[in-house]
């Protein structure tokens, strides 16, 4: 049987790095900022987390340092896009290049070293998986049921209106970018510390880009991010399990499926927004647009 508890556990573990990164990007995009540098943030988290875990022997410290490193790198993006009003698409791409290059240069001493083991948590599942799952309702509550979340969404929907109401658009966005960077960094560290147990350059292998797809699939909603991470993780796990069970699967064609599904979801969301007006799960109104307060 392919669809069993084992598959589910595999899927949840495989989905954890992209879930963290996607949750982070949900926060960033809900604040109206498009950060395409997730891959760069993840790889920096992967190296920083691994290095810290190796130096201290504590994986918890590793994840903490990864969060700090991810937030730190994200600050470059924040300063450029929020203070200097640079184009977010270009800045995000530069961030990815910079992160990949920087980690390849400074990661050399950590090649070929093994990470300390991640302690197993309740039900034999490690704490990071639990944390990832717990963050989903927490972020949902934070976004939808708190004043801070309301302000963040307001900034993302219409920054001019939010500004007129006296909210600090720039500060809110910088905070969101930092949070997104921290979560992406932890997602990256999960790959190096919990999955591979080693550092090798380029090890995130495109996970950051998948996280970006998931955010769209999710309709900018944390629960959707969980579903998206499981869909993307699930397709990978499922095709591998089908293969292991001796079923010939068209791997490349199957691996296109989640991206096509993402486009479909995006179209459905957008169509509802365009034709029916309203309803949840729409793209933040100010997504990707720079904000400049004239007074």
């Amino acid at each position: 049987m392919i669809l069993d508890v084992t598959t589910l556990l595999l899927l949840i573990s495989a989905a954890t790095p992209i879930l963290f990164a996607a949750l982070g990007e949900v926060i960033v995009e809900r604040a109206g900022v498009l950060n395409l540098g997730v891959e760069g943030l993840m790889i920096v988290g992967a190296l920083a987390g691994f290095a810290a875990a190796h130096a201290t022997g504590s994986t918890a410290l590793g994840f903490a340092v990864a969060a700090v490193a991810g937030a730190g790198l994200a600050m470059i993006f924040a300063v450029l896009t929020q203070m200097l009003l640079t184009n977010q698409v270009a800045t995000g791409l530069a961030l990815t290049l910079f992160g990949l290059g920087l980690t390849a240069m400074f990661g050399k001493p950590y090649e070929g070293i093994k990470a300390p083991p991640v302690p197993a948590g309740p039900l034999g599942v490690n704490a990071m998986i639990w944390l990832g799952l717990a963050l989903v309702p927490l972020i949902w509550l934070g976004l939808n049921r708190t004043r801070a979340g309301l302000i963040l969404r307001g900034v993302g929907e219409n920054h001019d209106a939010a500004h007129a109401l006296g909210y600090k658009v720039r500060a809110v966005r910088i905070a969101a970018i930092a949070a997104g960077g921290a979560l992406a960094g932890m997602g990256g560290a999960y790959i190096s510390i919990a999955i591979v147990l080693q550092w090798t350059e380029g090890m995130t292998a495109g996970a950051g880009w998948i996280a970006l797809a998931i955010v769209v699939f999710a309709g900018w909603n944390p629960w959707g991010a969980l579903a998206g991470a499981w869909l993307f993780g699930g397709v990978t796990v499922l095709q591998l399990r089908l293969q292991a069970a001796g079923v010939a699967v068209p791997v490349q064609l199957l691996s296109m499926a989640p991206y096509l599904a993402t486009i479909l979801v995006l179209v459905l969301i957008s169509a509802r927004q365009t034709y029916a007006r309203g309803g949840g799960g729409t793209a933040p109104g100010s997504l990707g647009r720079p904000f400049h307060a004239l007074r």
């Binding site: 800045t91 530069a94 290049l97 990949l100 290059g101 240069m105």
Partner: peptide, 13 residues
């Protein structure tokens, strides 16, 4: 080899 990526990233920044 990664130098090039760092350079391109910085140049754009």
């Amino acid at each position: 080899a990664a130098t090039v990526q760092v350079f391109q990233g910085m140049l754009l920044f």
